[in-house]
Design a protein around this nucleic acid. Structure first.
Lengths: 113, 113
DNA sequence: CAATATACATCGCCTGTCAATGTATATCGC
DNA sequence: GCGATATACATTGACAGGCGATGTATATTG
């Protein structure tokens, strides 16, 4: 069966980038959003989520800062940099190409778009 | 950038299954077909291709036999088993779901179908 | 006051992809 | 005739990303 973990691989970065493109956010909420959007079918596991944040920040496409909540658990917010936004747009464009290629490879004759 | 190797990951099995669904075939030709279909954008590297054949055969979804060519390099042909065909159909169905989910996660509001 | 939700973090394993390397046969141009 | 290139299969070891397990801490709720 098509495996969710292997599907995720390669898309995790862009999924997070897409969430941040809507505005600054933090791990827990992003994780919940992904579950909601996919009706629970796909999930960014915590280990994956936080290692990905590190990687993206190191790459300079996101920046982080601690939230100023005075109540509840602390939150580390992330912000998309200009480079990050550029990367996001590139990845979206790439996806449209790869998506069509995979459909073609899977023998789906172009129920186009 | 969306990375071709990580895109492939998770789809390689089904790509091969799809090729064999059209009839028995062998590594070299399958590899060429994939390049052709994707205009060279995606490529099943030999190491990947042959290790995947092993994995799929072990899983009982394909079977192999040596070709009877009396000329040229020997060819190992692969044949889709009944289980293989079933898996192929399942993966195609899964793909349609995952494809739409990823599009949604990437913030592509449904230019449907 | 135990259970659950919120929230972040790290370690080490697993698995699939691939570069590098090796083998062997056939063909094509010069 | 011979070097280059195409056809064809195979293995080894490295690498990287996803994740299970585990740990920390605060807030809410029954």
């Amino acid at each position: 069966m098509l495996n969710a973990s292997d599907i995720l691989r390669g898309y995790t970065d862009t999924i997070i980038l897409a969430q941040l493109a809507k505005g600054d956010s933090y791990g827990y909420v992003i994780s919940k959003n992904v579950q909601e959007i996919t009706c629970g079918a796909l999930q960014l596991k915590e280990a994956t989520l936080y290692t990905t944040f590190r990687r993206l920040e190191e790459a300079g496409v996101i920046e982080s800062y601690w939230g100023s909540e005075s109540v509840g658990a602390r939150r580390r917010y992330y912000h998309l940099t200009d480079d990050g936004r550029k990367l996001y747009e590139e990845n979206r464009a790439d996806w449209e190409k790869y998506r069509d290629m995979i459909s073609a490879l899977f023998g789906m004759e172009d129920e186009k778009r």
